[in-house]
Design a protein around this nucleic acid. Sequence first.
DNA 1: GTCTATAAAGCGATAGAC
DNA 2: GTCTATCGCTTTATAGAC
Lengths: 185, 185
Amino acid sequence: MPRLVAERADALPALGELFREFGFEGTSLSMITVATGLGKGSLYHFFPGGKEEMAAAVLAEIDAWFATHVFEPLRRDPDAAAGIGRMFQAVDAYFRGGGRVCLVGVFSLGDTRERFATTLRTYFAVWGAALTDALSRAGWNPTAAADFAEEILAGIQGALVLSRALDEPAVFSRMLARLRQRAIG
Amino acid sequence: MPRLVAERADALPALGELFREFGFEGTSLSMITVATGLGKGSLYHFFPGGKEEMAAAVLAEIDAWFATHVFEPLRRDPDAAAGIGRMFQAVDAYFRGGGRVCLVGVFSLGDTRERFATTLRTYFAVWGAALTDALSRAGWNPTAAADFAEEILAGIQGALVLSRALDEPAVFSRMLARLRQRAIG
DNA sequence: GTCTATAAAGCGATAGAC
DNA sequence: GTCTATCGCTTTATAGAC
């Protein structure tokens, strides 16, 4: 029977869900030991920097996932509209139709913002730039593209907040459909 | 020289800023004693239920403020477009042009969501209903009005997240201007 | 009403045996 | 690499003097 957590990377999904659900302060080491099945000794073996290093590792993994599944299609797909379509598809899958919040958003609103300032800022800045580029290639004029990219990113984050508050994931799905329609018809 | 905190309500502004900035878990009683100038004895005199009662009191105050300055104009202003205009003005002032986050949003994303579930849900539900009504009276067809109201609320929340992450309040101002333009021209 | 002192529990982190 | 035991500190909350 294979071990559930054989290396550092195996613990990241559980860590991500905890930080998403309870925030940085709200996630305690005892919760982490339960969720990962790892003792404190093992945790500090994998993450010598403790909780902060765990959160940084989760953020790095998220960054890598979005770089592959969102930013790259936006920049590299020769058919710009198709790249934008893939973005909406990936975003819907990642946030599970509104049932999962955005850790970057959660950390941006909390007192974790200063601790991870560069990572948080870069995530949205890179996404915004890639989306602006794709919209431009899809026919939007540069100014309108930058404006609409900002509106799409904010719409996604806001819909996640609303879905959570109303306990109604459909809010997120509707927002994604609206934005997609306006972007690529 | 007047006392800064003579009664329970006088402590709410400081409590609000703390919860907004650090979240529920991230705000400790020692931070609260410093920010309010009140000892623990006084705090538990005003709020026997401790931190949870403090947070609930802050949420209630926010609810009341929005009821007066946002929901009522939306519902009561005979000129629906003017009521919507007043909403945007009040929202911009309340969130200080993007320099201040929304406590309801912060609590909705965190583990505080379940604790204050009814309050958080009601805040957005009531706002959404009042805005839908105003948009309908302003000439939007009912379906489009409900859809757009949802989009406006999400846009506001998302723009606050983005402004915070990018440390760029202008993102919020731009979003408000765009939404206002689409709503009432 | 306000304070200080203190209780009881949980926190992040470390040490050291295995 | 994983565990248990423990350190030192902070947490929320209470008690009781004033």
